[in-house]
Design a protein around this nucleic acid. Structure first.
Lengths: 163, 163
DNA sequence: TGCGAATATTTCGCATACGAAATAACCGTG
DNA sequence: CACGGTTATTTCGTATGCGAAATATTCGCA
């Protein structure tokens, strides 16, 4: 044991801090890059998603960019205004709205080289492969624990909705 | 030119996905809990911070909760309206606004058992200690890489601000 | 001393972001 | 067919969240 072993609480706080840093900074930078092309962060996410997957219903789109439907309605409104995407009603189920890129949106999507969270991705790619795999393994186990805690909490809420 | 193991990209994508999941879900849950006490997420962060550190200037407060001054001005406005905090001008430097808890805010801060990102913290705490340390080590190295990339990018921008 | 640069905060306009309620369309069962 | 429950989306009100410009104050230095 050569290096002084850090206190456990400090390690945990450090992990939380670092995750917050990585998330917020990557997001900020992506937003900045998007702005060079006249887009906002979420707008970049949307055109990249649509370019990859073709047309999507509003709800599957909002699921993929992790936002509520009501949020995405607004984002799409502004993108329609900018002529980046189109709204079209599905033939089979007229409740569903399909969003797809206009030629202008398509062109822009392919022109912008940045993926969401790009800097984070690149930094990960430069890690030793072994470290990346280890990181993935541990993070995955944390995620499983969080999911469990969430399920538990939701079960509690469901069982006592009156209190 | 080595034959890339097909798994590697998936590992990287998985890491990004998981980080996004952990951050957004923890945030969502904290917000939900705060709502039980009539607070928003950022408001909870603010009273916890002030309870720990005493009065803070607006800019040091915004630095700590990772938001812009202009954002925190609004948050504090609404908290003053709710009589959770006070604004007072510093004696020594009248540009500085010091924010501190009212008794009502103080009481609420001590009454709420939740820290920001609570679920994430708890899940981390249940990890094997060795895994936590490994996680910290690798994340820290990712963070260092991100910082480096950001510095580099900012240097470029500073050198060619006219293009 | 005085004045221009620097610093701290606020204001403004806009874009998320969310949850609850409203709206529209579908579905199954009677 | 009709109608009650479900599903997809939008609307509404409010709270972040940001960057640029405005405002207020302090500081450096000639």
């Amino acid at each position: 044991m050569t290096a002084t072993r850090p206190k456990h609480k400090e390690v945990l706080d450090g992990i939380v801090e670092t995750i917050i840093y990585l998330y917020t900074e990557s997001r900020r930078l992506t937003k900045e890059r998007a702005r060079d092309f006249g887009l906002t962060g979420p707008q970049l996410a949307v055109i990249k998603m649509l370019d990859q997957l073709g047309s999507l219903s509003l709800s599957s789109l909002s699921e993929r960019i992790r936002a509520q439907n009501s949020t995405v309605t607004g984002i799409v409104d502004r993108m329609v205004r900018e002529e980046l995407v189109l709204r079209e009603r599905s033939e089979h189920d007229r409740r569903i709205v399909l969003i797809r890129l206009t030629p202008k949106g398509q062109k822009l999507a392919r022109q912008i080289p940045v993926e969401p969270m790009e800097i984070f991705r690149q930094s990960l790619a430069s890690l030793p492969r072994k470290d990346a795999e280890e990181l993935f393994r541990v993070l995955d186990s944390v995620q499983a624990r969080v999911r469990l805690a969430i399920d538990e909490r939701e079960r509690e809420v469901r069982e006592e909705p009156w209190t």
